[in-house]
Amino acid sequence: MTISTERGDTAPSRAAYRLLSSEIRVINIGLRQFAANLEARKVPVINVDWSPPAVSDPKIGKLLAKLGG
C-alpha cells in the first residue's frame, strides 16, 4: 500500500475551512436523538426519515448514489 503524498495547503483543504467559518446547518440521517440534541440547542437541522433502501445490495446502492439516485 502506498501513502498519499498529496497534502499541504491545497485548494480542497482551503475549501474545508469553509465549514469552520460558516454557520453549521445539519442534515441528520440515522439516530433521531442527534437531531433532537441539535434542535434543543437551536442549531438548524433537518432529520431524514431514513429506512434501509429497497435495494439492499451495497454495490448497487453505491452505484445509484454516484448516479445521484
Binding site: R18, L19, S22, I24, R25, V26, I27, N28, I29, G30, L31, F34, A35, P44, I46, W50, P52, P53, P58, G61, K62, L64, A65
Partner: peptide
C-alpha cells in the same frame, strides 16, 4: 428542503453508511 446545509451527520447501520 433545507438550502445551505453544509454537514451530514450520518449514523445509519454500518452496511448502509458508506452509500449515504
Amino acid at each position: 428542503e433545507f438550502p445551505g446545509a453544509n454537514l451530514a451527520l450520518i449514523s445509519v447501520p454500518g452496511e448502509f453508511a458508506a452509500v449515504e
